[in-house]
């Protein structure tokens, strides 16, 4: 934890302190708390029973929940395997082009989600050569779940690699080299030494990746065609319910589920951060002697 401001030179006068604290409550209250309260307030306006019916009564709503719970984990799994591979070669080896590779991994964060969706439509849409060929062989990518997975995986591409690279670098190679010299094979070393050492960082990246994957709207909007019961994910379906005019209560109910997932994500994130800080403190202890 951080040091407390003990010395008088670091303490601000009470009126500045008071003003800034009130302002902080005001800023976070207005920007974050009021919208969240609004979602839950509207969702539960007619009671728990109505809320439950709103969530489970409509087959399209049920399908959107199911679809999001299918698409997001696949995208997270793809990016996790990639993240581990990328972190291993970047944190453990020096090779020409390494810096460029790091920059390229960050690239998807600076691409607008709409552009991301557009790219996959241009590559796999029914009018493109690749898309037409796949269609002829019975595979539809755009306006179908595979397109949703691709767009989601693109938008969340950097999360796991980004969290894992610095953590793997910080852990160092000593234990891995030791395992190797004791005769451990490559995979044995990976499962027994490397992975346990970075597990919290990996989980952290996966949680953030999952939150973004479940909530993605812009890229999905473009590749999905928003076909109810087929390609409408939860965020898309929330929008459709709102736009249908008389289903605000159902829309808020589904939105509250997404909001709950976001809050849960932050909760897990805080827990992992605490765990990571503990690990760091333990690792630093023997070296703090002087």
């Amino acid at each position: 934890m951080q040091t407390k401001p003990a010395s008088p030179t670091r303490t601000d006068p009470w009126y500045i302190r008071g003003t800034l604290i009130v302002l902080t409550f005001g800023i976070i209250g207005l920007l974050v708390v009021i919208p969240i309260v609004k979602v839950f307030g509207e969702a539960f306006r007619d009671g728990i029973g109505a809320y439950w019916t709103n969530l489970t009564g409509d087959p399209e709503t049920r399908h959107s929940i199911f679809l999001t719970l299918m698409v997001a984990p696949v995208a997270v799994a793809l990016n996790t395997v990639f993240g581990i591979a990328a972190a291993w070669c970047i944190a453990r080896f020096r090779f020409p082009g390494r810096t460029i590779l790091i920059t390229l991994i960050d690239l998807p964060f600076s691409v607008s989600p709409v552009v991301a969706g557009l790219m996959f439509v241009l590559l796999f849409g029914s009018r493109t050569p690749v898309g037409a060929w796949l269609m002829a062989h019975g595979y539809q990518v755009i306006f179908a779940p595979p397109g949703l997975v691709l767009a989601t995986a693109f938008v969340t591409f950097p999360f796991v690699a980004r969290e894992l690279i610095p953590i793997m670098e910080a852990v160092g190679t000593e234990e891995e080299v030791a395992a190797r010299s004791l005769g451990a094979g490559g995979w044995a070393m990976f499962w027994r030494v490397t992975l346990p050492n970075v597990k919290w960082g990996l989980l952290y990246g996966m949680i953030l990746c999952n939150a973004r994957a479940m909530g993605e709207y812009g890229a999905i909007y473009v590749v999905s065609g928003r076909i109810g019961g087929v390609t409408s994910t939860m965020p898309i379906h929330v929008q459709k319910l709102f736009e249908s005019g008389n289903k605000d209560a159902a829309a808020y109910a589904l939105a509250s589920l997404l909001t709950l997932l976001a809050i849960l994500t932050l909760f897990i994130k805080v827990m992992i951060e605490r765990k990571l800080r503990q690990d760091q403190a333990e690792a630093a202890k023997p070296m703090e002697a002087p």
Binding site: L78, A85, W88, F93, F95, L104, A116, F120
Partner: peptide, 27 residues
């Protein structure tokens, strides 16, 4: 001493190309 350099770099480049670089180029 440490294994897996070509495997991990190869997979990284493949996945990066398929998911990011080729779609960008197509655009």
């Amino acid at each position: 001493v440490l294994p897996g350099f070509s495997l991990s770099l190869g997979y990284t480049m493949l996945y990066l190309s398929l998911l990011v670089l080729i779609p960008l180029a197509v655009c």
